[in-house]
């Protein structure tokens, strides 16, 4: 199976995608902003529509659009003391509405909604693989360098400010990287897999470990194992790759529930 170069690319893509999202998954889940992944991927819809209308480069336009919205969500929630969930919902609905209007204005009826929902890892190009590798490296470096700030930001942002922990710049980078992860992974993984990859590896790791560094490592391991297993199964039984990876993770989640640690 690996004698085909496009399959090798697809496998590397699935592994890199799993790695980069799994590093962030524990923080996203603990901050209870797992819906943020889903929301940002829907917000990307407006970015895609904007790129189609203006004929600007698709990925770059979407990336800038989603990053700006992610920063606006963080700033609005902080400045006006709004709940992040409500702020995200506002931007989600507005972006979806904007996306539909922009798509209709661009008269682009060839826009493939299914590929946006489910992605197709087999279509991944070498350039996109490079983008995924750079992003995975940036995620890893970010978490390693700013672990202390991320840890306390995730625990309690208000108390972090009391103790003068510099969480604001770290939160901004976190939001930007999260947005970048979603946009870059959208083509290969689609909304559904991106959302699953931001939740499932972390909740499986929570079942098995009680310290955050170990949880992050387990989250990455679970994600890589699921990507390998899902990839193998999808080609053995001829199933869609992304969906099979998600099912593998769901299976691991139920399998590890019995090991769930109680504090």
């Amino acid at each position: 199976m690996l004698s085909y170069s496009f399959l090798v690319n697809a496998l590397i893509g699935a592994l890199l995608s799993g790695l980069s999202l799994a590093i962030f998954a524990p923080f996203v889940t603990l901050r209870k902003i797992s819906y943020m992944g889903e929301a940002l991927s829907h917000i990307a819809f407006a970015g895609i529509a904007l790129a189609l209308l203006t004929k600007l480069p698709l990925t770059l336009t979407t990336l800038i659009f989603v990053m700006l919205i992610a920063l606006a969500i963080a700033a609005l929630a902080r400045k006006h003391k709004l709940q992040e969930s409500n702020t995200i919902s506002i931007f989600l609905s507005v972006s979806m509405a904007l996306g539909v209007i922009l798509i209709s204005l661009s008269r682009n009826y060839s826009f493939d909604l299914a590929s946006y929902l489910f992605g197709n890892v087999l279509l991944i190009t070498t350039g996109e693989l490079l983008g995924l590798a750079i992003l995975a490296f940036l995620n890893l470096a970010f978490v390693l360098i700013f672990y202390k700030e991320l840890f306390y930001l995730t625990y309690n942002a208000e108390m972090s400010r009391v103790f003068r922990i510099r969480i604001n710049p770290v939160n901004r980078i976190f939001m930007l990287l999260l947005a970048a992860n979603i946009v870059v992974n959208l083509k290969s993984a689609g909304i559904i897999l991106v959302t699953a990859q931001l939740i499932l590896p972390a909740v499986i790791a929570f079942n098995l470990a009680s310290r955050l560094p170990r949880i992050i490592m387990l989250s990455v391991a679970v994600s890589l194992v699921s990507a390998l297993l899902g990839f193998y199964l999808s080609f053995s039984v001829n199933l869609p790759t992304g969906a099979t990876i998600v099912l593998c993770e769901a299976f691991l989640f139920f399998l590890t529930l019995g090991f769930k640690r109680r504090y």
Partner: peptide, 12 residues
Amino acid sequence: MGLAGTLPLGAR
């Protein structure tokens, strides 16, 4: 956490 703010950004 009570000491984290006394350390530079990114320091362990």
